[in-house]
């Protein structure tokens, strides 16, 4: 029996093309399900933090199917393109925003020993580079809508990129120095003795703050500030195109939380005493906790102003990040 299954495994599953296919299916599948889970958790968490119930009807049990219902609704919605808009750019912008969000999952390791799509040797670099492409889509969406609110939102989004990208990169650079590799599984493996959040606590905080800005999540949701500029670059979008933007936002929460947990929280490395819990559960748990914090902040904070974010980034975060790199370098060389 075992022999037969092993034979089947070698014959079919071990075939490179099948693995190739499985990888793609897994990444796309993850991209489509993880945001749903985070989105549902956000609905319910916010609801309970705000003394209300949240979705309760769809799927009978505590509205678990609410986001699926939303997805079905979105795809049935009429697709409206404003007459004044630049139609081609307007149409492809949601795609430009969404495809990079899928690609980030490509390098995220979800456990030891091959629980990843590919172990790129420039993994971190790839993840950070690809995730900032979404901003181009955002600018395209905002500009092509020919709407003043969208334009202001897009300009704010670009300003946000300028503010968060450097702290994000510099905080990552310090981790890379410590681990001596750019590969995400490599960085996770290097934390077998202690998690990098201990020596790189400043870097961890910078990374989380910068990630929030990249995701346009409160308190840095100025590009989509609904009480000021309606919904920023998404104002004119309807139906499935709008759904793409939302999907990207929640996928971004998952992917950046996962990357942060690999960079700073040891990825699949367990805490002492509870080592029997398998690696993938560890990384999912850490991602979940970070995602929850992102959601929690939304219930707590008002939003900043764009110039205050710039000021914070250039006057505090970048000098701290540079100092962090310096200290990490000295630490590495001396010890």
């Amino acid at each position: 029996m075992i022999a037969v299954s092993q034979q089947i495994f070698e014959q079919y599953i071990n075939n490179v093309w099948i693995i190739f296919g499985l990888k793609i299916v897994a990444v796309v599948g993850l991209f489509l399900t993880a945001p749903m889970v985070v989105g549902y958790v956000e609905h319910k968490t916010l609801a309970h933090m705000q003394a209300r119930l949240g979705p309760m009807e769809a799927g009978k049990f505590h509205g678990w199917a609410q986001l699926i219902a939303d997805g079905v609704k979105f795809i049935q919605k009429e697709d409206i393109t404003p007459t004044a808009a630049d139609k081609f750019v307007f149409t492809i912008a949601p795609g430009i925003v969404m495809v990079p969000a899928i690609l980030v999952f490509f390098v995220v390791p979800f456990g030891p020993n091959g629980w990843w799509a590919e172990n790129l040797d420039v993994g971190v670099f790839f993840a950070l580079a690809i995730s900032s492409i979404s901003v181009i889509g955002m600018l395209a969406a905002g500009w092509s809508s020919a709407n003043k609110f969208s334009l202001i939102g897009a300009v704010r989004g670009a300003a946000q990129l300028i503010a968060y990208e450097l702290p994000l990169l510099l905080a990552t650079a310090a981790v890379v120095m410590q681990a001596g590799t750019l590969s995400l599984p490599g960085i996770a493996a290097a934390q077998s003795h202690y998690w990098y959040v201990l020596p790189q606590f400043a870097g961890f905080m910078l990374f989380i703050i910068a990630s929030l800005a990249e995701l346009s999540r409160p308190p840095f949701d100025m590009p989509i500030a609904d009480s000021e500029i309606i919904f920023g670059h998404m104002t004119e979008y309807t139906g499935v195109k709008f759904a793409f933007f939302l999907l990207t936002e929640y996928a971004g929460i998952v992917s950046l939380s996962a990357i942060a947990s690999v960079l700073f929280l040891g990825g699949w490395q367990p805490l002492p005493l509870i080592k029997f819990v398998p690696g993938p559960l560890w990384i999912l748990g850490k991602t979940g906790i970070l995602s929850f914090i992102v959601i929690w902040l939304r219930a707590t904070y008002p939003r900043l102003r764009e110039d205050q974010l710039q000021k914070m980034a250039w006057k505090y975060m970048i000098p701290i990040a540079l100092l962090d790199i310096l200290l990490t370098g000295i630490f590495k060389v001396v010890f």
């Binding site: 190739f20 149409t91 795609g95 495809v99 690609l103 490509f106 590919e118 139906g239 793409f244």
Partner: peptide, 21 residues
């Protein structure tokens, strides 16, 4: 190669969703 394929699949997903819509 896998990355390229994934990009293509992502693009195809966008097109399929638009067509479905």
């Amino acid at each position: 190669g896998t990355l390229g394929a994934l990009t293509a699949v992502g693009g195809a997903f966008v097109v399929i969703a638009f067509l479905g819509n």
